[in-house]
Amino acid sequence: MHTLPLNKRDALKNTVPQPLRFSRVIPGLALTGVITAMAVWLSDFPALSQLGLSALTLAIVIGMVIGNTFYPAARPWCEEGVTLAKQRLLRLGIILYGLRLTFAQIADVGATGILIDAMMLCSTFALACWLGQRVFKLDRDTSMLIGAGSSICGAAAVMATEPVLDAKAEKVTVAVATVVIFGTAAIFLYPWLWQLNAHYHWVNFTAAQFGIYTGSTVHEVAQVVAAGQGVSPDAENAAVIAKMIRVMMLAPFLLLLSGWIARGKGVKEAGEKSGLRNITIPWFALMFILVAAFNSLDILPHSWIPQLITLDTVLLAMAMAALGLTTHISALRQAGLKPMLLAAILFVWLIAGGAGINELVHHLFG
């Protein structure tokens, strides 16, 4: 019987996904757990809570401090657990977030929320492509990756768009860096904008409408949760609903982008190179809707809900801590000036243009 040489068998073995080893993820999960405990403890201090610094916001701040000081030395032991928290625990936390909502609340966001999300997605991505290629003379892939991350759901959208474009790894890294930088800034900026708007009355937003504005303009799901929580529970709920609608637009966006590439390159060539088979469907967004539907049926005992919501908060805080641990100041240098300028202009558009679009849609259809 024919057998592979030892070195080839070892190489083949390394290409097969290995089962998750709990001993390798425990250190990272323990670290994010300790950061979460510190964040929850600090969030109870009135001086911090009055500033809108929630447990999620504090978790990412503490994570960023540790991530840029002590964490590099511990990364070999903690990296797998931190990655698990940043990816899987975040998705589980978003799924469980559906227990805070009912379809009646989702209906309150309604068609206006869908319209706002669609307008923000199309306008932001189109602006990224035009500015990136015409003004900053960036290549198509970098412009589109930054545009996808800014207009849909941050790093997840960048990673999902990469196989469609067949983009190089360094371009993906640059796009993810811009998303992390400006999305993290939004966590602190949006609660402050809410307070300023309450004083100066720039736009006539209720807490729920400001939540829709947050969900339709902030990059990452976790960042939306943290920013919304820094405003109010009503804003947080509306923000998450609007954001999840936006996330679910990822699949049709990728299909349309694939079709556009196919039209430009030829159907056969694009079918081979644009990664059509690798399109990522955001299943956690669909599960979020299913959990919200289940919660609307009022089947679970009411005594279970507070415990499950507490668990959800812990999971989200651990994900935020992991996001902070992996956010490095060096990302500013790595991204380069032109991609950073493009992402900065998109960030300004999301804030100012997003406020205008939200105000217009609420005025016409609200």
Rank of each mutant, 00 (worst) to 15 (best):
F136M: 07
T124R: 00
S123W: 05
I116Q: 02
R134D: 10
D139E: 08
K137S: 08
A128S: 15
V135Q: 10
D141Q: 14
M144K: 13
T142F: 03
G113Q: 01
R140N: 06
V135N: 08
F125K: 02
G113D: 05
M144R: 14
L138Y: 03
T142M: 00
F125E: 12
F136P: 15
M144G: 09
M120S: 14
W130G: 13
L131W: 01
G113F: 10
M144D: 11
R134L: 01
K137V: 01
R140V: 05
S123C: 07
L121Q: 09
M120V: 10
I114V: 13
D117P: 07
G132K: 12
I116H: 08
F136K: 13
K137F: 08
Q133Y: 04
C129K: 15
I116A: 03
S143A: 13
G113L: 06
G132I: 11
L115T: 06
M119V: 15
K137D: 06
I114A: 14
A128H: 08
I114W: 10
A128T: 14
T142W: 01
M119I: 10
G113Y: 04
Q133F: 12
A118K: 05
L138R: 03
G113P: 09
R140E: 15
L121T: 04
T142Y: 03
R140K: 13
I116C: 02
R140W: 02
A118W: 00
L115S: 03
L131G: 07
T124K: 04
G113A: 02
L127K: 00
D139H: 07
D117Q: 04
L127W: 11
T142E: 14
L121E: 00
L121M: 04
S143G: 11
L138Q: 11
K137G: 14
A128I: 13
D141G: 02
A118L: 13
I116Y: 01
C122S: 14
F136Y: 07
W130N: 10
S123M: 05
